[in-house]
Simulated assay, not measured.
Amino acid sequence: MNSAQQMPATEHVSAEVVVELESCATQDAHAVFSALRTSFSSDRAADDVPEEVAGPGSTVWTSTFDVSERKAAAEPRRLTAPVLVSLQGGYWAVDELCKGLESAFAVHILGTAAGDQEKEVELRLETR
């Protein structure tokens, strides 16, 4: 097979991004996840609201979003405090999810870690 006959790039690119929120208020986790569900498909139902778990340690909320098709831009959402978010997925997918967050929040990139096929991005979200 010559280079002109290679499979389309979209077949090599994962459109899923794992989103983790840690040490934030339950209502802030709900605001972030509901904003993302407005724009992208999720592995969680729309009525799946984050709940605090009793016990030692911090609560981590995780959801996976498919960014292959953007549904709509999320309206700005209010947060009670800045929220730290970790995104992990393919380069294109993580960039698309970041763009989706920008319609709802002020997004600050705190750091990135790049691999061969995926990258991880640490963000701080604030009310716009």
Results as ranks from 00 to 15, higher is better:
M1P: 00
N2F: 14
S3W: 12
S3V: 15
S3M: 15
A4I: 04
Q5R: 12
Q6E: 12
Q6L: 10
Q6V: 14
M7G: 13
P8Y: 09
P8W: 01
P8H: 13
A9V: 02
A9T: 01
A9Q: 00
T10K: 07
T10Q: 09
E11L: 14
H12C: 11
H12V: 11
H12T: 13
S14P: 08
A15S: 13
E16L: 14
E16F: 13
E16C: 09
E16K: 08
E16I: 12
E16G: 06
V17Y: 06
V18Q: 13
E20F: 05
L21N: 12
L21M: 15
E22N: 12
S23Y: 03
D28F: 02
A29H: 09
A29I: 05
A31W: 10
V32D: 06
V32E: 03
V32N: 07
V32A: 04
V32M: 01
F33W: 01
F33I: 04
S34F: 03
R37L: 02
T38K: 08
F40L: 10
S41T: 15
D43C: 05
D43G: 01
R44N: 04
A45G: 07
A46C: 08
A46V: 11
D47W: 01
D47M: 08
D47R: 09
D48A: 15
D48R: 12
D48V: 15
V49Y: 01
P50L: 13
E51C: 11
E52N: 05
E52F: 13
A54K: 07
A54D: 15
A54L: 12
G55K: 04
G55M: 01
T59M: 08
T59P: 03
V60H: 08
V60R: 11
W61E: 02
W61C: 06
S63C: 15
T64A: 10
F65N: 07
F65G: 08
F65D: 11
D66S: 02
S68P: 02
S68H: 09
S68N: 05
S68Q: 11
R70L: 11
R70W: 10
K71W: 10
K71P: 12
A73H: 02
P76V: 09
P76E: 04
R77A: 15
A81H: 12
A81D: 11
A81S: 15
P82Y: 05
V83G: 06
V85D: 01
V85I: 00
V85C: 02
S86R: 11
S86P: 06
G89N: 07
G89C: 02
G90M: 08
G90R: 09
Y91L: 13
W92M: 06
W92Q: 08
W92H: 08
A93H: 00
A93Y: 08
V94E: 06
E96G: 04
E96V: 14
L97Y: 09
L97T: 09
C98S: 09
K99L: 12
K99H: 10
G100Q: 04
L101Q: 04
A106E: 01
V107H: 04
H108P: 06
I109S: 01
I109M: 00
L110A: 10
G111T: 10
T112K: 08
A113M: 01
G115L: 00
G115D: 03
D116W: 00
D116C: 05
Q117T: 14
V121R: 03
V121M: 03
V121A: 06
V121T: 05
E122M: 13
E122P: 03
E122N: 11
L123E: 03
L123Y: 04
L123F: 00
R124C: 13
L125R: 07
T127E: 05
T127W: 02
R128V: 14
